[in-house]
Nucleic acid binder design. Structure first.
Lengths: 262, 262
DNA sequence: GTCGACAAGG
DNA sequence: CCTTGTCGAC
């Protein structure tokens, strides 16, 4: 079977639930990971997405963060968290079994500024995430890690690597710890299919005409363990939704896998 | 020629400029009076309505009030104000010549509560309005007065006249002063064509299901001096826009006149 | 630029 | 219920 997955930092699911429904109806992914839903669980629009055939799993909080996984297939929640490192109440990680594939969706802390407490927290959070993977999964088994990583891994993943090196999101310390997680056993599925640079998933609202000038960052990712990554057939970014009236500052990243059974 | 006029308390022209453009394109009035535009003059979407063939005259302020007249025809502003009575800076009155007809658009103060200062202000404001008409116009000449009067004139203009008598918007003092203005020389054009009750232009947002239960008020009006009123051919309320996703709490009131020349 | 929270006004 | 301005976050 073909298995189509997507990730999208939606920057408020309530402000953009209609655009998401339109996109799902058109693109029909088997699973989509959402970040920055910015909604408490009691207010998540479950029925709204149920009506278009999507089930929802979500972990939210007031105002900030919030993650969700939507799928037309049955989903089983996967328990587990980052332990002491993560601030309690922060909704940044959710995981589910979908079609026998474990899917982990993260909204990695943004990090504010390299000299800030929040930056240290971001590094510690990513470090703890490797331990989370090691505790709960195996690199020899299929596993999907998707979401807003808030890190552009390589120079070709930002529009001006010289100027931006050392900024939050493209900092050597971030690269070090992201590689530390990667070494546990992940491959960058998008990079496998799109080796050239200039493909971005995020354009800062505050940079005028950032999209048409392509002044973006590739900070949203689809990573997989080797046994799954080798089954990927394609990966791409859909920038059309960024041309809509009230777009998110991020856009959709997608990948497809050719799965054997089921 | 047929002369079609409309009035609408839009409750923010920025929040509803698209719905207004749709309505204008469909209904093609020769003039529309808007209240509660809630936008400063520098931010009024002139070009947006120019693109669909409507010219704009407007008087706005920050956050509150704001009036505008839109027309596909050339418009000449008519100077004049209420003098000392009106609070300076309050954008509640605007007037223009359209096709040789003087059009006065008012957003009468709401009045808050009968025992409040604001209620006394409302009464004084309406009294000063008669003086404004007397100073600037003649009851023997065509004149249109349209807008949100914030008064339901008769028992058939509120859904529960017994209970509501004495409330703001249906208070004997308001009826007295509104009649004082009317006696200068106005006729209620809507009432002429729709003698029966139960036709409303406003439903309080805070009354749940107010529209379907028809718990409304007729507080938006189209009044004219005798020489113009006798040329009116029809008047009606369009409640369709109140069924949209983000409706105003008011809706459109319209009238048509058969004018001799031009 | 755009979001959510909040408080004030209707 | 809905909009506005202000605020903090990203």
């Amino acid at each position: 079977m073909n298995f189509k997955v997507a990730s999208f930092n939606i920057n408020s699911i309530r402000a953009r639930q209609e655009m998401l429904a339109n996109w799902l109806t058109k693109n029909k992914p088997d699973v989509i990971c959402l970040q920055e839903t910015k909604v408490m669980d009691k207010d998540f629009p479950v029925e709204y997405f149920q009506e278009i055939g999507y089930n929802s799993l979500f972990k939210g909080q007031k105002s900030y963060n919030g993650v969700a996984i939507l799928s037309p297939h049955p989903m089983t929640p996967i328990a587990g968290d980052l332990g002491d490192v993560a601030e309690p109440g922060e909704a940044r990680l959710i995981a589910a079994m979908v079609k026998d594939i474990p899917v982990v969706n993260t909204y990695v802390p943004q990090g504010q500024a390299p000299d800030s407490e929040k930056f240290a927290y971001k590094l510690a959070w990513l470090k703890a995430l490797r331990d989370y993977f090691a505790r709960n999964f195996s690199p020899d088994q299929p596993l999907l890690w998707m979401g807003d990583f808030n890190v552009a891994p390589e120079p070709i993943d930002v529009h001006d690597p010289k100027r931006l090196l050392g900024h939050v999101g493209f900092h050597p310390e971030e690269h070090k710890v992201l590689n530390y997680v990667k070494e546990w056993g992940f491959q960058d599925v998008f990079r496998k299919h799109q080796p050239e640079g200039g493909h971005f998933t995020f354009w800062d609202y505050r940079i005028r005409q950032g999209l048409v000038r392509n002044l973006g960052w590739r900070i949203d990712h689809i990573w997989a363990t080797a046994p799954l990554a080798e089954k990927s057939t394609n990966a791409w970014i859909d920038i059309e939704p960024r041309r809509l009236a009230k777009p998110s500052d991020h856009t959709f990243i997608l990948a497809e896998f050719a799965l054997s059974a089921n």
